[in-house]
Write a protein that binds this DNA or RNA. Structure first.
Lengths: 193, 193
DNA sequence: CCAAATTGTCAGTCAGTACTGACAGTCATA
DNA sequence: TATGACTGTCAGTACTGACTGACAATTTGG
């Protein structure tokens, strides 16, 4: 979406999300948010009334991506490595699209954030657990603790996502793509019958 | 160390670290820090001169734990699962002791934080990579990409640590101890020749 | 017991930030 | 051309938090 087509409210909300993800709610001023949106502080207060209301509006407008349902319903081929690769790429894609909201949830303790930022990983844990149960029933993998294995695999990906989230915490030059490829291989080998 | 034996400077630094880890630098006042230390705000400014200097002093005083060297030098038995279990428990112990500094580094962009909070995991990545190389040379494991495998294993543990760091991000009831046990088993199985 | 060290209270200053009313300017549309 | 919608400027108000000097109280150690 071309930013030049956006109204003032949209610009202010996007600027708010961007700056609060970076500096935290108390670390950014309404003057800075307005400037980043290319508008005056007066306009910010005309539209939203208060800083807090701007954040709430930006939060509500932010569509938290979560699309694993369709993938699990339609795109699996019941080959462990192929499926895990697809799931993992989708996971990182979704997490990346939610990255600013996740950054905000790390910094701030705001009502509703927890529920929203956890919906996607919680849903994925359930789907992946069910997938491992079904794969074990088919004899395609060996997993006596499917939920623990689903959780372990997700922790690996979550760790990589958190490592990559911010240059402040990234301590390795290993890229995300090769990591995804190899981590899927390693895990598939671990569950091979 | 009994808090009653501490001087005022120590109490203020510990209170500062605790509150800033929880609320961020801009989310906590000097009045709050002093009150948490059981002292007056006046005393805080007598000792440190400014809020910023208090943080810097607390940061310098904070001994960032990093003790993997001794473990890798003396305690390995060159059995993959046994060694990984020991390493992993030690990793989480160290990360847990550094948890407040890590929480602060997530919230704030302060000079020197990055270098300090990355020293331990970076060091562990090197040690673990060398360990996998040696284990492969001994024929005890199969690993054609030891650094990638070391990194993958650490990402799994890092993800679990991050998931456990703060109730705001924790979305699973799986405990850390059983996770450690099973994640080590899974990874050991993956690298088995 | 006394002096030194340390802390607490109080009444501030100062700078910054959230927020506002009044007034003026620009743009789009009828 | 006029009007409505929207935005910007300006000069504020009110409040908050970092920080301070003066003075008093308490604690500690010789």
């Amino acid at each position: 979406m071309d930013a030049s087509n956006l109204g003032s409210r949209d610009k202010l909300q996007m600027a708010a999300i961007h700056l609060i993800a970076e500096k935290g709610y108390n670390g950014v001023t309404t003057l800075e948010i307005a400037a980043a949106a290319g508008l005056s502080e007066k306009t910010l207060f005309r539209h939203f009334g208060s800083k807090q209301k701007l954040l709430e509006a930006a939060f509500d407008r932010y569509h938290y991506a979560e699309e694993m349902k369709k993938l699990f319903a339609e795109k699996l081929v019941w080959e462990l490595e192929d499926d895990l690769l697809l799931i993992t790429k989708s996971y990182h894609d979704i997490m990346n699209r939610n990255r600013k909201m996740i950054q905000i949830s790390l910094k701030e303790d705001l009502p509703g954030f927890r529920e929203r930022t956890q919906r996607h990983p919680r849903q994925l844990l359930e789907f992946l657990t069910d997938y491992f149960i079904e794969m074990a029933a088919r004899g395609s993998i060996r997993s006596d603790q499917p939920e623990m294995h689903a959780f372990s695999f997700m922790m690996m990906q979550f760790g990589a996502f958190m490592n990559d989230l911010d240059s402040r915490t990234n301590y390795s030059t290993i890229g995300l793509e090769p990591f995804i490829e190899e981590s899927v291989k390693v895990f598939a080998r671990a569950l091979k019958p």
